[in-house]
């Protein structure tokens, strides 16, 4: 863990920093998250893996400020998370069906205080960034699942937050569309320098995208292991080294799950 440790001590504030974060949904109930420490450097792409129900979404919601931690502190971009200072992309596109694609993006800009005169152009730029330049006037129900997810991505980019949290954003998509969105996301990440925290069930997806892959245990949720993925140049999900590391991580994930059978 040499790299992460040295990162934590540099003077640049971490993009996300969790200190002893514990979460119980009922007072005195089981700890869903148990004393989690996590530091994510600016510009890092981190994938969070774990069995179903281990608390990944809970962790992300706490970082997003949607849910309070029971104890511990959460800092985003150097200040305490009080809500609204990280962009979040949900598993569902969560677009507002009464607005067009462009208006969905514009709403994010508007709520950030971008003046009306700039919103339209800015929204078009963002739609262009996700290769949906021509679909701005389409109603949400006229878009395919992959297109909706791209509009949702454009909307979360419109929030102009340094930290982008993604909760299984591509889980509901077919493999080809998902591959494509991996390429898109990687390109946008490289172009914008955002810090990305990406949750997934899919080990290969995690290895395909992440610079760092974290494995969470279940009940209580802790971060039990982590891998640094160092692949230079373009990574494909079919690449053998992706497959090899994915296999190793899957073994650990299985062990983690089996622990609960005993």
């Amino acid at each position: 863990m040499s790299t992460a440790a040295s990162r934590a001590t540099t003077e640049i504030p971490a993009a996300v920093r969790l200190d002893q974060v514990t979460k119980r949904f009922a007072p005195g109930g089981p700890a869903v998250l148990d004393r989690i420490d996590l530091t994510i450097a600016p510009g890092e792409f981190v994938c969070l893996l774990g069995a179903s129900g281990c608390g990944k979404s809970t962790l992300l919601n706490i970082v997003a400020g949607l849910e309070p931690a029971s104890s511990g502190t959460v800092q985003v971009a150097g200040s305490l998370q009080l809500g609204g200072n990280a962009a979040l992309m949900f598993q569902e596109p969560a677009l507002l069906p009464w607005l067009t694609a462009r208006r969905n993006v514009e709403l994010a800009l508007r709520l950030r205080g971008v003046p009306r005169s700039e919103r339209r152009d800015r929204a078009d730029e963002l739609l262009e960034l996700v290769h949906l330049g021509g679909a701005g006037d389409k109603a949400v129900h006229e878009l395919s699942g992959g297109m909706r997810q791209r509009v949702a991505l454009a909307r979360s980019l419109a929030q102009e937050r340094d930290v982008l949290l993604m909760d299984e954003p591509f889980a509901a998509l077919d493999a080809i569309t998902r591959d494509l969105l991996h390429d898109e996301l990687e390109r946008i990440w490289l172009a914008t320098g955002r810090t990305v925290v990406f949750i997934t069930h899919n080990v290969r997806e995690a290895v395909r995208l992440g610079q760092r892959v974290l494995l969470m245990s279940s009940r209580p949720g802790r971060i039990v292991r982590e891998w640094t993925v160092e692949v230079h140049g373009q990574r494909r999900i079919e690449a053998p080294e992706v497959a090899a590391l994915a296999m190793e991580i899957t073994d650990h994930l299985r062990q983690e799950i089996r622990r609960h059978a005993l």
């Binding site: 863990m1 992460a4 292991r225 982590e226 891998w227 640094t228 993925v229 160092e230 692949v231 230079h232 140049g233 373009q234 990574r235 494909r236 079919e238 690449a239 053998p240 080294e241 090899a244 590391l245 190793e248």
Partner: peptide
């Protein structure tokens, strides 16, 4: 923590 070998090749 483990680190995979750097690689440039993708099949």
């Amino acid at each position: 923590s483990e680190t995979t070998q750097p690689s440039e090749t993708t099949t």
